[in-house]
Amino acid sequence: MVNKLCLGLLLLISCELFASADVVEFSDEELRPRYQQLIAELRCPKCQNQNLADSNSPISVDLRRQVQRLLEEGMSNQQIKAYLTSRYSDFILYRPQVKQNTWFLWIAPIALLLLGLLILYRISQRQKSTVPLDKPVEEPAKETLSSDDQLRLRELLKNTNGDSN
C-alpha cells in the first residue's frame, strides 16, 4: 500500500519535471542549434550565476522566448546579442566582447601563464649556477682536507678498525 503510494508520488513528481522543460518549436530546424548556443552563452539578468538555458526564472523564460522570436525574424547571432546588450548591458554576455574594460579579462590568463613560465625558467637557471652538475661532488671535499687532516683521518680509521676486532 505504502509502496504504491510512493510510486504514485514519484510519478507525479517526474511528470512535473517533464512539464517544466519547455518545448520550443522552430519553423526551420536549422535554427535550433543556434538557439541552444545563444541561450547557453546569455546570462540570466536576475539570477546572476545561471545562463538563460539553465534558469527557470520568469525573466529567463521571457528572454528565451524573445531570442526564439528574434531568430525566427532572421536576426544573426551578433544582432541578437547587440539587441540584448542594448537593453541589459554587457552583463548579459557570458562571453564578453574584447573592449577597453574587458581586455584585462582576456589577457590575464595568457599573461599569468607567461609570468609563471618565466619564474620557472629563472628558478631553474639559478639552480644550475649554484650546483654545477658537470663536476663530481666529492672533488671539492678532497681538496679541502689538508695533508695533516688526511693523516689524522687515517689514524682514526685504524683505531676504530682495531676496536671492532
Partner: peptide
C-alpha cells in the same frame, strides 16, 4: 506580456 519591460531591460 512584459514587452516594454524587455525594451527597458527590466529584470525585477
Amino acid at each position: 506580456q512584459g514587452t516594454l519591460g524587455i525594451d527597458l531591460g527590466v529584470y525585477g
